[in-house]
Design a protein around this nucleic acid. Structure first.
Length: 143
DNA sequence: GCCAACGTTGGC
DNA sequence: GCCAACGTTGGC
């Protein structure tokens, strides 16, 4: 039967100097660890297998570079076994964008004025609405 | 390099 | 429970 839970959309940030899209693609999969903010943690915990995740390069690049998907839902962060507060998910790359979408472009787009990435610039895992997601994909494929 | 935003910590 | 001090993130 059809799932009653539609896919959700997210955006995760990574500094490419620390962990880049290229590295992610080479590995084929990533354990998304190191999140130490409760709001971001709650977002990780809400992710479901198949959810689509935009991959954003912060600080260097400042652009959405590709699309990933959730391949494993949240479980306790193995890097801090004594601290049960934090969780990880696992992500796998789906596609590199034909055209990366810069922060400048996102800010200029009327449909994206409420984008959590912009409104809460320090949050490293943010939700994206279906409309916002479609808009960003369109920018990534625009000629 | 600067600074705004914001989360955390700890004194009271 | 308040708030000052401080640390971190990330855009500019």
């Amino acid at each position: 039967m059809q799932s009653s839970n539609p896919l959700n959309y997210w955006l995760v940030k990574s500094e490419p100097d620390a962990y880049s899209w290229d590295h992610f693609v080479k590995q084929g999969k990533a354990v998304w660890d190191g999140v130490r903010n409760y709001q971001a943690r709650n977002n990780l915990a809400s992710m479901r297998v198949g959810d689509q995740v935009l991959f954003y390069h912060s600080v260097t690049g400042k652009e959405v570079v590709g699309l990933a998907r959730v391949c494993c839902e949240s479980y306790p962060d193995p890097t801090v076994p004594d601290d049960p507060r934090w969780v990880v998910v696992e992500l796998e790359p789906v596609t590199a964008f034909p055209k990366r979408v810069s922060l400048q472009q996102l800010k200029a787009e009327p449909l994206l004025q409420n984008l959590a990435l912009i409104r809460q610039s320090r949050l490293s895992v943010v939700p994206v609405s279906p409309n916002e997601f479609e808009c960003i994909l369109a920018l990534a494929h625009a000629t």
